[in-house]
């Protein structure tokens, strides 16, 4: 269950960005691929625990999922493939490069003005 460690790291990073912008965090958007080693349902579950401990009880996590896609180094064709069979859909070669599917990315944050902080104009 390394998802909890990942959530803590994610929230630390989000906090730094929010602090730099003097804002609160409404939503954290992450992009997860099947080959990242992170399970989206476990990440969501871990996040609901970690956000309390990190002092962000109202922050939501939005998980975008990518699919495993490869490009064949032999014939050049692109295919969408299962997680454990990275074989070219056209020529069946395993000499392929991954073009998506291993992402574990903090994509964006939706920031909101901190209600307690009043910013004076000028």
């Amino acid at each position: 269950m390394h998802e909890l460690s990942i959530c803590q790291s994610l929230l630390d990073q989000a906090r730094q960005i929010a602090d730099q912008n003097k804002a609160g965090i409404e939503t954290i958007v992450v992009l997860i691929g099947p080959l990242s080693g992170v399970e989206a349902p476990l990440l969501a579950q871990a996040f609901s625990i970690a956000r309390q401990a990190a002092g962000f009880p109202d922050t939501e996590l939005e998980i975008e999922l990518s699919s495993v896609r490869i490009r064949c180094r032999q014939c050049g064709s692109e295919s969408k493939v299962p997680n454990n069979a990275l074989l070219c859909g056209s020529c069946q070669s395993w000499r392929v490069e991954l073009i998506s599917g291993d992402e574990m990315i903090l994509k964006s944050l939706v920031l909101i003005e901190k209600p307690a902080v009043m910013v004076k104009a000028g």
């Binding site: 990942i6 790291s9 990315i105 903090l106 994509k107 964006s108 939706v110 920031l111 909101i112």
Partner: peptide, 11 residues
């Protein structure tokens, strides 16, 4: 609301 793009690893 401000949406800020981060694009860094979760780790």
């Amino acid at each position: 609301k401000a949406s800020i793009e981060v694009l860094s690893s979760l780790l």
